[in-house]
């Protein structure tokens, strides 16, 4: 996993500036910048937060305070594949509990945990906007819908 020092190239810095330039007030860039750092590092490390604070003229507290409000942002490595299974009503009605059991068995972890090799993290999340294609999950940003245990196996087997 790259460290923030690896990630912070002139190109990265330029991208950050381009994001900030879109907003009438700099602080608005905080979420897009947190995503930028997380997508590059797999999580938001402390020096990433410091970088954002400095860019936006904020202190670390401001950045940390905002970050911790949002469920998609992490301050520790997420893992290579973040499996986010929807547990909300439409998915629940269409078999999400069975999919969860299957994932738990196959990965040997419970929601909120990571496999020891850091390859998978399993999360149960709330409605991801795939209700008409329930049950559904996201792996990182990719949607997988109309899930069955067999389909889940095929999806996981196909991951590089």
């Amino acid at each position: 996993m790259p460290t923030f020092a690896d990630v912070l190239t002139p190109e990265f810095d330029r991208q950050a500036d381009a994001i900030i330039a879109r907003y009438p007030q700099k602080r608005s860039a905080i979420l897009p910048l947190l995503h930028l750092v997380q997508n590059a590092c797999n999580y938001v490390p402390e020096d990433g937060m410091r970088f954002i604070a400095k860019k936006l003229g904020l202190n670390m507290n401001d950045v940390y305070e905002t970050l911790t409000f949002y469920s998609m942002l992490f301050t520790e490595p997420i893992g290579t594949y973040h499996i986010q299974l929807c547990r909300t009503i439409s998915c629940y009605l269409c078999g999400a509990p069975q999919i969860r059991e299957h994932l738990e068995k196959r990965l040997g972890i419970r929601p909120g945990q990571k496999t020891p090799d850091g390859r998978f993290r399993l999360s149960e999340v709330e409605c991801i906007g795939a209700c008409s294609a329930a049950p559904a999950m996201q792996i990182n940003f990719d949607f997988h819908e109309h899930l069955t245990p067999e389909k889940v196996d095929a999806i996981l087997d196909a991951l590089p």
Binding site: R27, S28, L31, T66, F69, Y70
Partner: peptide, 27 residues
């Protein structure tokens, strides 16, 4: 037109929470 990503929070659909979030604060 600027596309602005949220980061996981149902409450940010409530319009004033959305505005706080868009300003870079907790939603």
């Amino acid at each position: 037109i600027v596309v602005h990503p949220g980061a996981g929070a149902y409450i940010c659909g409530e319009e004033t929470a959305l505005l706080n979030s868009l300003e870079g604060y907790r939603g």
